[in-house]
Design a protein around this nucleic acid. Structure first.
Length: 480
RNA sequence: GGCGGGGUCGCCAAGUGGUAAGGCAGGGCUCUGCAAAAGCCCCAUUCGUCGGUUCGAUUCCGACCCUCGCCUCCA
């Protein structure tokens, strides 16, 4: 199809690179992209910061699909981990019952934001045997060691002795890591502070959360699940790996170490070809925290009356590598921007009538749009193209300078754009019967030129939360 | 302390060695019974500060100031 037109910043080379997957073709002959995205740890509701990452990753996926790639998208669900175990202990709920709830809530939020469902969503607890096999292999290669308590650690020294490099994603000298005084009590057996747990021996606080292993009862460390699941589902070497920027170190660095330390890759092939990291977001200029009262989940924003489409628009407003400042005012701005867009689309649809037009990727507008997106997902520039287009369409509409087929053609542009943006159609407001009735009365008052009555009826409507606009096609309703 | 991002209009946010996209908000006009929507026009001689290179820098170099993140669980 369209080979290698997209350039993306690769964290591992710290450079903009042409994205070139190397995973052959899918059964239908389309070039395939093997893609792993670090998913949620299901111990609570996801917050707006989490979803910035997932929305930007969704944008990446949609753009690559638009460019003709077939994406095999794997997103893990971390359903065993320290915080989860603590909450399970506190609530007394069974592990699966507890994590299942937050997993469902997460999926529901993804749908709210119109993110495409991953091809596969493996759970860590369903890959325990693969995890154990991987740790055994690391042990066999001398890059993992067993501690007295039955935990197993990754040996960075052993890894280096194999000729591998630790510190591929970040410049880091493990000897200089500033490890806090508070070394976890279950990790004092480590040979080196930078070594990390592959398998954690069972402790009483773990309660019923443990699995049998060659090292006794215990549970997997955090990083190992991603190595095990990604390689199991995508192979030992795959194209693209994404996540939030905070995962660069240590999580992704350790994932590389575990995966390449196992030596399953063909000579010369890396664990991951391309690393994609999304910057964090701030809320009101500060890091989100519950004590500052600037901590928002998707359900919080829905409760404030915002829609998933508005939230998605806002999260899509800034480049993925820039820190983004999220505010409620920004959300109001998104609402206004979408209203302008929807107004234009609505007018075009009226003019187009029954005319339809297939998508045309070769229009000048589309070329500009795609050039922006191909340039490291420059979404702000892409939006500028869209709004330049809106102005031009509005200008033509205002002078009746557009035919039905031209309007259909114009709409096809937007439909192409939206395959990438994924905003979907404007949600249709259900106009209450009462509102319609008042509007009819107002129309009649207007007809007999009783304008004071017409105005008072308009006020009644706005008291009910509705604005009415007079158009040649009759009254148009808009929620205030 | 180490490493890495940022500082561009009231707010959000692009961008380029050759004279500042787009969105929101704001002002004027047209249209409208009044509105709304839309159109047209206006809205940063200026891009954190100070130096340097250059015919020319917001864009390159240096210093400084401020700010955010990572280095510990974190999207």
């Amino acid at each position: 199809m369209s080979p290698s037109t997209t350039r993306l910043f690769n964290t591992i080379s710290r450079k903009l690179e042409t994205f070139e997957p190397d995973s052959g073709v899918d059964p239908s002959g389309r070039p395939q992209v093997t893609f792993y995205c670090c998913g949620p740890t299901v111990y609570d509701f996801g917050h707006i910061g989490n979803f910035r990452t997932f929305v930007q990753v969704d944008l990446l996926r949609r753009h690559l699909e638009f460019r003709g790639y077939s994406i095999r998208h794997v997103m893990n669900v971390t359903d065993v981990e320290d915080k989860i175990i603590r909450r399970v202990r506190e609530t007394g709920q069974p592990l699966q019952e507890f994590t299942g709830r937050y997993e469902r809530e997460f999926l529901s939020d993804l749908r709210t934001l119109n993110c495409l469902t991953p091809t596969v969503m493996p759970r860590a607890t369903e890959y325990i045997s693969q995890i154990i096999d991987l740790i055994l292999r690391l042990e066999g290669r001398g890059v993992a060691y067993r501690a007295k308590d039955g935990s197993v650690y990754f040996s960075i020294q052993g890894y280096r002795d194999c000729g591998c490099r630790y510190g591929q994603l970040v410049n880091i000298n493990p000897e200089e890591l500033r490890v806090g005084e508070r070394v976890a009590s279950d990790e004092y057996d480590k040979q080196s502070v930078a070594d990390f747990a592959l398998w954690k021996a069972r402790v009483p606080e773990d309660g019923k959360v443990f699995w049998e292993s060659p090292w006794g009862q215990g549970r997997p460390g955090w990083h190992i699940e991603c190595s095990a699941m990604s390689m199991a589902l995508l192979g030992p070497s795959f194209d693209l790996h994404a996540g939030g920027e905070d995962l660069v170190f240590p999580h992704h660095e350790d994932e590389i170490a575990q995966s390449e330390g196992a030596g399953l890759q063909q000579p010369g092939r890396p664990f991951v070809r391309h690393w994609f990291h999304v910057a964090h977001l701030l809320v009101d200029g500060r890091k989100m925290s519950k004590s500052l009262g600037n901590f928002f989940t998707i359900r919080d924003l829905l409760a404030k009356g915002f829609g998933g489409r508005e939230i998605r628009h806002l999260l899509l407003g800034a480049h993925y590598r820039e820190t983004f400042n999220f505010t409620v005012e920004g959300l109001l701005g998104s609402r206004a921007a979408l209203a302008r867009l929807d107004e234009c689309l609505g007018k075009l649809a009226v003019v187009a009538g029954a005319e339809t037009c297939s998508e045309n990727v070769d229009s000048p507008w589309m070329r500009q749009f795609l050039a922006s997106m191909d340039d490291d997902l420059s979404v702000s520039r892409a939006w500028a193209v869209v709004f330049d287009w809106v102005r031009e369409q509005n200008r033509l509409l205002s002078v009746d300078g557009i035919s039905a087929s031209e309007a259909a053609h114009a709409l096809a542009f937007w439909h192409s754009v939206d395959r990438v943006f994924g905003l979907g159609d404007k949600p249709q407001d259900e106009v209450p019967v009462e509102v319609r009735k008042i509007a009819e009365e107002r129309l009649e008052a207007k007809r007999i030129k009783d304008f004071s009555r017409a105005d008072s009826l308009r006020n009644q409507l706005s008291d009910l939360g509705w604005a009415v606009e007079d158009t040649s096609a009759g009254p148009k309703f808009r929620r205030l």
